[in-house]
């Protein structure tokens, strides 16, 4: 028996919105569109070869996390890219709360991703660890370090 994989469209209907929120929080509105596109492309490429369909949501988030990491690493290596890389064709989405977004994005990537997983998606530390490829304890530490910094930034 081969696995029954649901139509890919079902994954998009169920998860594209939350993946986009996750990516917006991680890399900002301008890069979130590209990142989501890359995430879905990479998922679609390997989709038929999956050997089980137990946790497709987790699988998608793992890919999204990797794409967000790529973007942030690229920015670190090419600091100018952050200024040049803004595609004029991609209109930035309205960000309802710029101050908070930018505070979240000012966090180091690991803390940022951990905080976003915890508070946007209400994940347990064990799941956060799995998605980020770190231990449960490290996930917990990243969340609390991120929160400490956020409190300082936003209440200042």
């Amino acid at each position: 028996m081969s696995v029954h994989l649901p139509p890919f469209q079902q994954l998009i209907d169920a998860h594209a919105g939350e993946l986009h929120r996750f990516l917006t929080a991680c890399v900002g509105a301008v890069d979130a569109d590209d990142c989501l596109q890359e995430t879905l492309m990479s998922a679609l490429r390997t989709y038929p070869t999956l050997r089980h369909a137990d946790n497709l949501r987790g699988w998608l988030f793992t890919i999204a996390h990797r794409k967000a990491t790529d973007v942030v690493r690229h920015r670190v290596r090419h600091p100018a890219a952050e200024l040049d890389g803004v595609e004029p064709s991609v209109a930035p989405h309205a960000e309802p709360d710029d101050e908070l977004w930018s505070a979240v994005r000012a966090l180091p990537l690991k803390q940022r991703a951990a905080v976003v997983h915890r508070y946007l998606f209400d994940l347990a530390y064990r799941e956060i660890g799995e998605r980020m490829g770190i231990s449960e304890e490290a996930a917990r530490q990243n969340v609390s370090a991120g929160l400490r910094r956020l409190r300082l930034e936003v209440t200042r």
Binding site: H20, Q37, E95, L100
Partner: peptide, 29 residues
């Protein structure tokens, strides 16, 4: 409250999904 606000933020994925669909077709996927 800061994090409650964070949890209630909404973004729009539709443009990215449309672009993905075009690319998926172009790349034969």
């Amino acid at each position: 409250s800061e994090l409650e606000r964070l949890a209630s933020l909404r973004t729009d994925a539709s443009a990215a999904v449309a672009a993905f669909r075009r690319r998926a077709a172009e790349e034969g996927l």
